[in-house]
Design a protein around this nucleic acid. Structure first.
Lengths: 146, 146
DNA sequence: TATTTTCATAGCATAATGCTATGGAATTGG
DNA sequence: CCAATTCCATAGCATTATGCTATGAAAATA
C-alpha cells in the first residue's frame, strides 16, 4: 500500500513547476536543484506526466515545463495515476472487464472497489493549488470531518 | 498502491476460518484446499496473524486455527495491517516520531496523513463477518454515500 | 510411538523500484 | 550556422520486495 518515489517526486515536481512557473517554463535542472532529486530520474518521471498532458515541455535554452492547465484544476488523483500508472489496490481491477477467474465469486472484490473509490475521492479533492498553499486543504478536510 | 497477495490471502484465510470454524479448529490444509492457495505460503502468512493475536493455533491431529475474537469484532484494517506490516502510504510515517529530514517542511505529508486516515476509516468499517455475508457492507457503504 | 498438525527459519526465482548512462532532437543566442 | 541548452527516449543495472518452496523442528493426539 505504498506510494512509490515516482508518485511522490511527481507531486513535488509539479508543485515546484506550479510555484515557480509563473513567468516562464521551469527547467528540470531547476526542479532538481530545488527539490534535491536526481535530474535523470526526473526526466523519467516527467515522461509520464507529459504523456498524461499535465505539463508541456519546450526545448532549447530558456526551455522547460509549464502546466497544461491551471493549478487549481489539477488534482492529486490525476498526478498519482499518471506517475504510478494505476492507483487501484488490486491488479485485477486494472483491466476491464476483470479477467480474474474468481472475480464473479470473489467476496473481497467489492471491498477493493470501495477502497479504490474512497482513495480516488480523497485525492480528487486536493488540487495542486492546495498543495502549494501549505496543505491547507488537508487540514480543512480534517476539520470538516470532526 | 497495491495490496499484496499476503494481505489478500490473509483476508481469504480468515474468512475461511470464520466460516468453517464453528465446530472446531480449521487446519491450514483445509484452507489451502478450499481457497486454492499454497499451504506453505499460508504457513508464512499465518505467523503474522497469530503474532497479532487475530487467530490462535492448536497443534496435533484435529488441530488448526480458530479466531481469537468473534468475526464481527475483527476489522479488515486489523487483518491487513497484520499481514502487510503497515498500511501507511509513505514509509516515513511508519516510525514515530517521523525521522525524515524534510518532514517539518514537507507539504505533502499532510496529504499522506489524510489519506492514511481515510483508508483506515474505510477498512475499519468492514468486519470479517461482513466479508462472509456476501460483502453486503461494501454495498451499504456505496448506498450511504449516494 | 507414529501421525498430524502448527511453528520457525532459510533460501531462491521473478519482478518492481530507483536510479544512471547514452545519445538523439529541437530551440535559442551569438 | 554553430554551439550551448534544454527536452525526449531507450537501455541498463543494482537493490529490494514479492511470492513462494524446503527443511526441520516441537507439540499434541490416538
Amino acid at each position: 500500500m505504498k506510494i512509490s518515489t515516482r508518485g511522490r517526486y511527481a507531486m513535488r515536481m509539479l508543485a515546484d513547476i506550479a510555484e515557480y512557473g509563473q513567468e516562464g517554463p521551469v527547467s528540470l535542472d531547476a526542479v532538481s536543484r530545488r527539490q534535491d532529486i536526481s535530474r535523470k530520474y526526473l526526466e523519467q518521471i516527467v515522461l509520464r506526466l507529459t504523456a498524461a498532458d499535465l505539463i508541456r515541455g519546450s526545448r532549447g535554452p530558456q526551455g522547460g515545463y509549464r502546466l497544461s492547465r491551471s493549478a487549481e484544476t489539477i488534482t492529486l488523483e490525476e498526478i498519482l495515476t499518471a506517475a504510478e500508472g494505476s492507483l487501484s489496490p488490486v491488479a485485477c481491477m486494472d483491466d476491464s472487464p476483470n479477467r480474474c477467474d474468481r472475480c464473479s465469486i470473489c467476496r473481497t472484490l467489492p471491498v477493493w472497489e470501495g477502497l479504490d473509490r474512497t482513495v480516488r475521492e480523497y485525492l480528487s479533492g486536493i488540487t495542486l493549488k492546495d498543495l502549494i498553499e501549505q496543505g491547507s486543504r488537508a487540514k480543512e478536510a480534517e476539520n470538516t470531518k470532526a
